[in-house]
Design a protein around this nucleic acid. Structure first.
Lengths: 350, 350
DNA sequence: CGGGACATTGAACCTAGTCAACGTCGGTGG
DNA sequence: CCACCGACGTTGACTAGGTTCAATGTCCCG
């Protein structure tokens, strides 16, 4: 199988060296001498893998990565950084931004080819692993044409990894597609002026993200962040656009998702307005409990996130959880919480 | 023009008398001897006007009115109660439920014919008056087929009057259509367990109600009540249903409305979670100010509603408004509030 | 073993809710 | 026509519930 590779590197020596090696290995190679050109080539050719220098004039490697990741059709392409420094800080930043791997210059032929191949192999494994998950996505599937089409799109599986605390999109970004959570957990949150955070939604496997923004053709109203390492399937907007005009059943399905979200939000609204801390926390726990799909239903969440979810101070969460424990409602150990008495939690007085 | 009239009355004497008079006047008359039969006939024939006794075995007049008003295709049919008692309490209840008129038994031929005719005339006037308003509804209209179709449906103008504090639908009712506010103001609200109310939306002229519930085929998530006397156009679900499957542009339009609602709700969430009373109230006022379309932009709302809108106690609203007044932000006189310093209200610190 | 992230606990403070009394206006009935 | 009632708004006093600040404890990772 021939692999298409894009190399973005401003130093001619290195760039030409890499091209030569990869072409000798039988791959198709596109070369760009700067970031801007790199992004253009990436969008035009949609290569199977991208190698990119960090330090470049004008648009640096981070910028390239950012741009490509924000565009659905290029978001899932494996991205390897080439870096001269063995500087840890830079690398950490790179990996946090979602790079898949890195190569420290100078590197030899073997290192280069290994990196490319191992990344392609991982990608392949990932595909196989998640084809199961994706095939299970029965929600949107029926015997109907449009939904079958949608499933096909989902099958193309542009999967991208997000590490803990990595941001998937920011409030204010233009919605350019939507996302399906395959594994892990994603929170969507809004920031108050003083920096306090309110979690508007928690999305575990099989849940959808960013639908409203995409369909309304507006900017995202909240910021999506990975709570733990997660895999996310990215569906570009253009592909959905056609479906919406051709198949009414698809729009109906989306409308239901939106309506469900409105329902949830309104319930949340009422809680924040009038419920006591105890009740808000109880409801928050129940919400998490319902989502938790591990056998023993243990909830794993930081106090900070729990506070942001229920709209209160972290210290208050700590205190109230301690109360709940002495009352025998829950058990807790660090950031692990087990619901013991569901009934009583549900009936929590105000 | 021949008018189709339905008479629902359990006493055979009266019923037959009425039928005779009306038929002599050249109208088509359907007669039902009890409430259940009456509802069936109404749905089958969709008469131009309904006369209905209050006191009947099994399903009484209130029940008939309730059922017919909850069904979009019959909701806008003028409804006249026939009542033996001159009892005010009963009548008040009837009018509050949305009856258009009443006749106290015994009534003579002239009274009966007058009541029918004057009601039909009013209905006609209403139609003419609102045909203007409805024609202005340019929002959903484009050169596109589906939206033109939608406009046609809206033109059929099933207009219904709601008096102050009358309920349009209750939380939990099945969504059987959606509503367009023609004049007046409607609030949608949710009730906390302890009875406190949170207003989730305020809808003035040209706004839509109950879209989410209708499209998702679920129950309403909140209760809609008229804040002042209002006119509302009712669109039955069945008619929309076809449009949705045939014309994608219509669904797109609805999707945008839903997305806008999500946007608004999320903003509201953040406010309720972390904002101070001063800031919440300031935002509430701004929201109202924006909607107010009278020239001088005077806001008219009760303290209770304002409190339910911002999610706080009425007394606190009173106090804070007084503060705002001494600070020169607003002017107030009873339930009339004028925004004086928009800038400072917007910049209100937390 | 040290440092940082996260959790817990204590104490002081303060915001906003509750309860209660009073004022005002408009409508209704005697 | 006036008196009364109820709905609505205002103001005061009190207090509970939660936030904030600060100190200390605990766990995990390099």
């Amino acid at each position: 199988m021939s692999i298409e590779i894009l190399i973005i590197e401003d130093t001619a020596d290195i760039r030409e060296g890499v091209v030569e090696i990869l072409e000798l290995a039988g791959h198709t190679v596109y070369a760009a001498a700067n970031g801007k050109e790199g992004v253009e080539l990436a969008k035009r050719h949609l290569p199977n893998i991208i190698l990119c220098d960090i330090m470049m004039p004008e648009l640096d490697g981070y910028g390239v990565l950012y741009l490509l990741h924000n565009s659905p059709e290029t978001a899932a392409i494996p991205f390897i950084f080439l870096t001269a420094k063995a500087d840890r800080v830079d690398l950490r930043k790179a990996m946090e931004m979602g790079a898949d791997d890195y190569l420290t210059k100078p590197f030899d032929d073997v290192e280069l080819l290994n990196a490319v191949e191992s990344r392609m192999k991982k990608k392949q494994q990932q595909k196989e692993f998640y084809s199961k998950t994706l095939d299970q996505l029965g929600h949107l599937v029926s015997h109907n044409n449009g939904l079958a089409e949608l499933q096909n799109i989902i099958r193309e599986r542009k999967v991208r990894q997000f590490k803990k605390n990595q941001v998937i999109y920011y409030e204010g970004d233009k919605g350019s597609g939507f996302y399906i959570v395959l594994s892990g957990r994603i929170k969507t949150s809004k920031m108050a002026e003083d920096g306090r955070e309110l979690i508007t939604g928690l999305h575990a496997a099989d849940r959808y993200l960013g639908i409203a923004a995409m369909l309304a053709d507006e900017a995202y109203t909240d910021t999506a962040t990975a709570v733990e390492d997660s895999q996310i399937c990215i569906i570009p907007k253009e592909q959905i656009e056609e479906l919406l005009t051709d198949y009414p059943d698809v729009s109906r399905q989306f409308i239901k998702l939106l309506a469900a979200q409105i329902r949830e939000n309104e319930e949340h609204l009422l809680q924040l307005a009038y419920y006591s801390v105890r009740k808000k926390l109880a409801n928050g726990l129940l919400r998490l409990h319902r989502q938790e799909e591990t056998t023993d239903k243990v909830i794993r969440i930081s106090r900070d996130d729990l506070a942001a979810l229920a709209g209160m101070a972290t210290e208050t969460v700590s205190r109230t959880l301690s109360d709940f424990k002495t009352e025998g409602l829950i058990d807790k150990d660090g950031s692990l919480i087990t619901v013991l008495d569901l009934k009583r939690l549900e009936k929590m007085k105000n």
